[in-house]
Simulated scan of single mutants.
Amino acid sequence: MELSIDQTFLPHTDPDAALTFYRDALGFEVRDDVGSGALRWITVAPPGATSIVLYPVDGDPDLAAAERDTIAAMLAKGSYARIHLATPDLAATFDRVQAAGADVVQEPTDQPWGVRDCAFRDPAGNLVRINQKG
């Protein structure tokens, strides 16, 4: 069997802020942008990579109000969703994302498990970790 990851999903609470972060701060290409207002599904990705669908938290009609409240609280805390990215130049990537005004969680750091990484929060509160590759 041969499988590959086609898409992964991250919630957003503000489609325009999410688009600005992923397109402008991270340099991702926009592959699709459907819906309207706050109910937009935006597909972004680094060129040639697996797509990330930024989806509206309020876009699932099957969620009860209590479930939406729980998700909103977890997003605000930064514990609901995360993504790990990799770059060959962590310092330059960190500088670019920080200069774009992203919420810095951790500056580039050598971790005890052998990885050098940094971390940001996207506008919805999702944790975005970036590892030094190579």
Rank of each mutant, 00 (worst) to 15 (best):
D14E: 12
T109V: 07
R116F: 07
D33I: 05
V104G: 10
V53P: 00
A100L: 02
V44Q: 07
L75D: 02
V105W: 06
V34K: 13
V34S: 15
V34A: 15
P108F: 06
I83N: 05
E67T: 11
V44S: 07
A81V: 02
P61K: 10
D60M: 13
G27Q: 04
A72S: 12
Q7R: 15
A65W: 01
Q98D: 10
F94D: 05
T87S: 12
D62T: 15
P11H: 11
A81R: 06
Y80E: 12
G78A: 12
G114Y: 04
D24E: 07
R23Y: 08
A99W: 04
S36T: 14
T93S: 12
P108Q: 12
P56D: 09
V115P: 00
L19M: 12
V34P: 00
L10P: 00
D24L: 02
A92E: 06
D117T: 01
G78S: 12
F9M: 13
D6V: 06
D33S: 11
L54C: 05
D58V: 04
P46M: 10
G48A: 08
A73W: 04
L54V: 01
M74E: 15
I42V: 09
V97L: 01
P112E: 14
R23P: 04
Y55R: 07
E29H: 03
G27Y: 03
T87F: 02
F94N: 06
A66K: 12
A49W: 00
P112I: 11
G59L: 08
P61W: 08
R68A: 05
K77E: 15
L75R: 02
S4L: 12
A17M: 08
Q111D: 14
F94A: 06
V105N: 08
A18P: 04
A65E: 15
K77M: 14
I83W: 02
Y80Q: 14
D117V: 01
Q7E: 13
A102T: 03
P108R: 09
P15G: 07
P46S: 13
L19E: 12
V30W: 02
T70I: 10
V44H: 07
T8Y: 01
S79N: 13
R31Y: 11
D33Q: 10
Y22S: 05
Y55M: 09
E67D: 15
T20F: 10
Q106M: 11
L54K: 04
E29L: 04
L54A: 05
A66H: 14
L39M: 14
Q106K: 06
R23E: 12
E67A: 14
S36F: 11
I71V: 11
T93H: 04
P15Q: 06
D14M: 05
A49K: 09
A66D: 15
T93K: 05
V34W: 14
S51R: 11
G101H: 04
D89A: 11
D110H: 14
T109N: 08
Q111V: 09
A18V: 01
S36V: 10
E67I: 05
G37M: 07
A38L: 14
D32T: 03
D69C: 09
G48S: 06
V53G: 00
M74V: 09
D110M: 15
P108D: 11
S4T: 14
I42Q: 02
Y55K: 04
